[in-house]
Design a protein around this nucleic acid. Structure first.
Length: 463
RNA sequence: CGGGGCGUAGCGCAGCCUGGUAGCGCGUCGGUUUUGGGUACCGAAGGUCGUGGGUUCGAAUCCCGCCGCCCCGACCA
């Protein structure tokens, strides 16, 4: 993309309403524009990041064998009356009425709807296990929206629902989700720690929240530093293997990690003092097992192998996609702006032309641009007739992890400069070497385009 | 929902207390400057001062209502 043809309305000054770094930087870098309290438009740059995050969530869900679909934002109140939540939910639920005076609502979550779909089409244990999910806009009429997209009223969320014949099956689904979530966050360059949590209004027995450590987090968290050493890395997980998933869950839940709601001071005190950590965290996901809480009242039953009708065991699992964009910035920024992890960056590499209009410099930039595109990368070329300082400031603000700087002085020596946004370190390379290095950096992040999910399994899904 | 604050040009703000129909910086547009970390200079455009009412000869300014937004708290993916 050429910056001269893009729409990137960056702000030099910080809008007064933004208190925390991510909100401030998202406004300043032209990622979002507030539409009304807690409701935002995603401008082109923000939209790119949102899509990258969403794509990773999809890929990892599909990898785990979960099936994507899409449910509507507006729901009929009738379904919610069936589950009893229409009255239980309270004023957080946005209720609307259509022209025929039918009660509708803008969905804050989809347990009722998915259960209705399930009971309409699934009758036998032979159709289980089944996990369906979608990524859709939700609305919760928060009393007090704040922190930009981190606590909006409208938010983009992945929510998934598993259906299993019994508790053991559902617990495997629970574990499978935990593993897939760990992979998801890790690919985004985030450390999200699973913590035992309260079940809240969704209700249930088993639940973990995933928290990203950040000073601006809404929850106080207590954990054993040992958990921050854990990595899934590139280990291949067979998501059908119950013991393999359970082992990974065991690995990640063994070290103490809890939010203030479930904090156990005695257990915490038993951790060696050097590893005891108290911090704040941003919740970016949660998984639940809630058994037959919805299937029983809503009649979501299947016939088991003995011919008996039994309610299915369910769980639900959420990842706050739009909130993750804010959380990513909270965890990755400095005084000059955002620092995107490679996995979610809106553009892979910036190109700064220091002398726009100079024939040789322009040509060198064009060539770099084309070569990067040929490698499957998406560069952002700042071809505006701005001074160097303005171009650098913009690049730093929008946070592209790598920047190629091209000017007459460097070119005279046959070199361009490759700079890492995170470390600030630069090296002079020939254009060919610079492109090769950028391509190498991103090679692991392109793997997703080529893999075949669950290729050797009995079932697999495609988006 | 309790407490506090704000609403004046695209953005950030001053002016309000002590009424006399608007000003600064940045940005934008047109020039000059050819600049390696938000350059400098010249010129220009741009505002029914959130909204409705009241007081007054006269209201951005004083009074009342409404709307919107932000902060603290309670609540929350």
């Amino acid at each position: 993309m050429r910056l001269s043809r893009y729409f990137l309305p960056v702000l030099k000054e910080t809008p007064a309403e933004a208190q925390i770094a991510s909100h401030r930087l998202m406004l300043r870098s032209g990622m979002i524009k507030q539409s009304s309290a807690g409701i935002y438009s995603w401008l082109p740059l923000g939209f790119r990041v949102l899509r990258r995050v969403e794509a990773i969530v999809h890929e990892e869900q599909i990898r785990a064998g979960h099936i994507p679909m899409l449910m509507p934002t507006l729901q009929s109140a009738d379904l919610w009356r069936e589950s009893g939540r229409y009255d239980a939910y309270g004023p957080e639920m946005l209720r609307v009425r259509d022209r025929h005076d039918r009660d509708m609502l803008y969905g804050p979550t989809n347990e009722e709807m998915i259960t209705d779909i399930f009971r309409s089409h699934v009758n036998s244990y032979k159709d289980l296990p089944l996990t369906l999910y979608h990524i859709q806009w939700k609305f919760r009429d928060e009393i007090r929206p704040r922190f930009g997209v981190m606590r909006g009223r409208e938010f983009y969320m992945k929510d998934g629902y598993n259906f299993d014949i019994d508790r053991d099956g559902a617990l495997h689904a629970y574990n499978r989700h935990m593993v897939s979530y760990l992979r998801t966050y890790e690919r985004m360059g985030l450390q999200a720690i699973p913590m035992r949590a309260d079940s809240g209004p969704i209700g249930g027995e088993d639940t973990h929240e995933f928290l990203v450590l950040a000073d601006t987090g809404e929850s106080e968290v207590f954990y054993d530093a040992a958990i921050t050493e854990l990595r899934l890395g590139d280990r291949q997980v067979n998501f059908d293997d119950r013991s393999e998933c359970a082992a990974i869950v065991e690995e990640w839940t063994a070290p103490y990690a809890r939010t203030d709601e479930t904090h156990d001071a005695e257990a915490f005190a038993r951790i060696p003092e050097a590893r005891r950590r108290k911090s704040r965290g941003i919740e970016v996901g949660q998984i639940f097992y809630f058994g037959t809480k919805y299937s029983e009242p809503m009649g979501a039953t299947v016939t088991n192998d003995k011919g008996e009708k039994v309610p299915v065991h369910m769980g639900s699992h959420g990842i706050g996609v739009s909130r993750l964009v804010g959380a990513l910035i909270e965890a990755n920024h400095d005084e000059n702006g955002i620092i995107w992890p490679e996995g979610v960056t809106p553009f892979h590499c910036g190109i700064v032309n220091l002398r726009q209009g100079d024939g040789e410099t322009d040509a060198a930039c064009e060539k770099l641009y084309k070569t990067l595109v040929q490698k499957g990368l998406e560069p952002l070329y700042d071809d505006r007739t701005e001074r160097a300082g303005a171009k650098f400031a913009t690049m730093d603000l929008i946070g592209l992890p790598w920047r190629l700087t091209v000017g007459p002085r460097g070119l005279a020596a046959g070199k361009v400069e490759l700079t890492c946004r995170r470390t600030g370190q630069s090296e002079d390379l020939t254009p060919a070497d610079a492109v090769a290095k950028v391509a190498e950096i991103y090679a692991p992040h392109h793997a997703a385009a080529h893999w075949e999910p669950m290729a050797n399994r009995s079932f697999h899904t495609w988006l």
